[in-house]
Design a protein around this nucleic acid. Structure first.
Length: 271
DNA sequence: CTTACCGCCTGTCGGC
DNA sequence: TGCCGACAGGCGGTAA
């Protein structure tokens, strides 16, 4: 489900209802693992009775601090958190209960998501965080340009690699490349400084616009409040194979690159 | 070191 | 109607 804008949308929604007044009472785990083993009740015991802090997002991860501990949630492809309509559903895996009556349920049909429990001071040093690149909003064109030197992969592949810049997934990679006028198949090493600068700006713009729209709803993405995002109405190329380009009217192309569907306009993205 | 590919899962959709 | 393959917003492990 989620790229950076969807995770950011979930974070903002959860923050509104959690504030920093909730006290964690109990966590139920309905299975032993998602993508990776889940913590078990005895592991998270030290956090029970402690106050929730401010939610954060790093890359596509949600961080929920409780006392000096942090729950780390990654939504994989189909993970969602909900806090209303709490009656049990197929694929509910985790239920967090707070003392003010609030409950959060994690549902994830494909179970590609993960959920971990760490001491807060250890989170950024943990396995999944150690090699993350910069947040896109902290990245400059020159930095991206320098990072792409001598890289044989395509530029689309490069920006989707979380080691280089975080938060860009398959939808927003196609959208940002269209916005910057760069072919997804361009070798990263052949991108000029000027185009790198345009691309970084395009990534920031597209992500910001998607955050403003509450994310992209394809099939089933919903924010924690159960609202649909509406950025899908602003997609220029993703999912629009064969439809006219919004700029030049030529048909949008689609090709599977490295196993992921990739959309672009052959006329607007010649570089 | 980098790169390409596979596997992990369930659900849905289109073609036959 | 049913069956079968392709595909779906991600990422880690592994082989070359």
């Amino acid at each position: 489900m989620p790229e950076l804008p969807e995770v950011e949308t979930v974070k903002r929604g959860l923050q509104k209802i959690l504030r920093d007044k909730s006290v964690l009472q109990k966590v139920h785990f309905y299975r032993k693992n998602l993508r990776f083993p889940l913590p078990q009740p005895q592991d998270i015991k030290p956090a029970l009775g402690l106050k929730v802090g401010l939610l954060e997002r790093r890359a596509k991860y949600l961080l929920l601090p409780v006392g000096e501990y942090t729950f780390v949630s990654h939504l994989g492809m189909t993970g969602t958190w909900r806090w209303q309509d709490l009656e049990p559903r197929k694929h509910d895996h985790i239920r967090m209960i707070f003392k003010n009556g609030l409950e959060l349920i994690y549902n994830d049909p494909r179970r590609f998501g993960f959920f971990e429990f760490h001491k807060t001071v250890q989170v950024l040093r943990s396995k999944h965080f150690a090699e993350l690149g910069p947040e896109p909003f902290e990245l400059t064109g020159e930095e991206l340009f320098l990072a792409t030197r001598k890289r044989a992969v395509t530029i689309k592949n490069f920006i989707m690699n979380q080691k280089h810049v975080v938060g860009v997934g398959n939808i927003y990679a196609s959208e940002a490349l269209f916005s910057a006028g760069v072919r997804p198949t361009l070798k990263a090493s052949r991108m000029s400084l000027k185009k790198a600068t345009a691309l970084v700006e395009a990534i920031k713009d597209v992500l910001n616009q998607a955050i403003t729209a509450g994310g992209t709803t394809i099939s089933d993405f919903k924010s924690a409040e159960g609202e649909l995002g509406y950025f899908q109405n602003q997609l220029q190329v993703y999912g629009r194979k064969g439809e006219p380009c919004t700029v030049c009217g030529k048909r949008i192309k689609m090709k599977v690159l490295n196993g992921r569907s990739t959309y672009w306009c052959g006329s607007c993205q010649k570089y």
